[in-house]
Amino acid sequence: MRITQGTFSYLPDLTDEEIENQLSYGIAQGWAPSIEFTDDPHPRNVYWEMWGMPMFDIVDAAAALHEVRRCREAFPNHYVRVSLYDPTLGRQTTALQFLVNRPDDEPGFSLDRLETADRRINYTLRPYAARKPHGSRYGG
């Protein structure tokens, strides 16, 4: 099951050139790119690992793309995303975020139903990949 998270996630995966264009656009807006990776695809997982520091002082997208490539090389079977942080006073939040790498095989989620009182059902999602311990998911 293909995970859809962040902007452009319903489009085919971005090529490097497209990623660079997006980065160029963000940097031109004054946003700072940062790169994160994880092997826990749960949509509520907010604790992605940082790949280096956010790049506040770069001028050219080539530098950020270079880091994207290095991260991908190190974690070919992880999810890798780029976040562009808008530091302007009053906004100070992520302005654009998209996936730049995903594992080859994405097993998806199981849906757990928990019967509670009065025949009510609580639902929860559980990534199949997350059944294995951190670091050994996705054949990695």
């Binding site: 280096g52 520091m53 790049m55 770069i58 001028v59 050219d60 080539a62 530098a63 880091e67």
Partner: peptide
């Protein structure tokens, strides 16, 4: 290494 890397990244495109 990280220090040099930061500088190189900052200088890219220039």
């Amino acid at each position: 290494a990280p220090k040099t890397n930061e500088v190189l990244k900052r200088a890219m495109g220039g």
